[in-house]
């Protein structure tokens, strides 16, 4: 027996279902932000410690470890969370993934320029790009903490070149936390709360 709806019920059902689907799909969105955020902060601190103690600037090569360690950790953690139901991809998440791929390309290009052109300090560009990515993601999915933290990262990134000596590495660690870890935890907490409310 089919349940036919009134016009009001139909419109409510459409709005409710689209919102629930969106919320369900977004549950996976906080994980990459947290994983890459923590890996970036730890890498910044590690490079700061090593360079301060040894004055060997070849430790900057450790930046290349961020995508390697980040992806490895992300895949391990995601595998641990594998559920019976496979999460689908929304049109929005596909768009965001492509945008981050584009930003990653620019990131790699800048790293290449920094290695070829000695003395080109591009550290602030790391945060500028990540902040831009987080803010744009927030604007696309209409999520305020991402927009606020992303813009904060973009604005504060220009302070880094003025920091004395190697302290810009500590500045990088702080800004990675502001741009990625804080909004990642805010979203994770909101999703957990939402999950409890729907249970």
């Amino acid at each position: 027996m089919e349940h036919h709806l009134t016009e009001k019920e139909s419109l409510d059902l459409i709005a409710r279902t689209i919102e629930q689907t969106r919320s369900r799909v977004e549950q996976k969105a906080a994980l990459p932000m947290l994983v890459f955020g923590y890996v970036s902060v730890i890498t910044s601190l590690l490079i700061w410690i090593l360079i301060t103690r040894t004055a060997d600037y070849r430790y900057h090569f450790l930046w290349c470890g961020i995508p390697v360690v980040g992806w490895a950790l992300f895949l391990i953690l995601r595998k641990g969370r594998t559920q019976a139901v496979q999460m689908p991809q929304s049109h929005m998440s596909r768009l965001i993934a492509r945008y981050w791929l584009l930003l990653s390309g620019v990131f790699i290009l800048l790293m290449g320029v920094a290695f070829l052109q000695k003395g080109f300090d591009n550290s602030f560009l790391f945060i500028l790009l990540v902040g831009l990515g987080v803010a744009t993601t927030g604007l696309i999915v209409d999520y305020k903490p991402y927009v606020v933290c992303g813009i904060l990262g973009v604005v504060l990134s220009v302070v880094l070149p003025w920091l004395p000596g190697n302290t810009y590495l500590l500045g990088l660690a702080v800004l990675f936390a502001v741009v990625m870890i804080i909004p990642g935890h805010v979203m994770h907490r909101a999703l957990q709360k939402n999950k409890t409310n729907h249970a």
Partner: peptide, 21 residues
């Protein structure tokens, strides 16, 4: 109809979805 409208409302915001989802 309630169920068909729910199905379509889920699918319209996704590229694709599997049966279990």
């Amino acid at each position: 109809s309630a169920l068909r409208l729910k199905i379509v409302s889920v699918l319209v915001s996704l590229e694709e979805a599997d049966f279990l989802f």
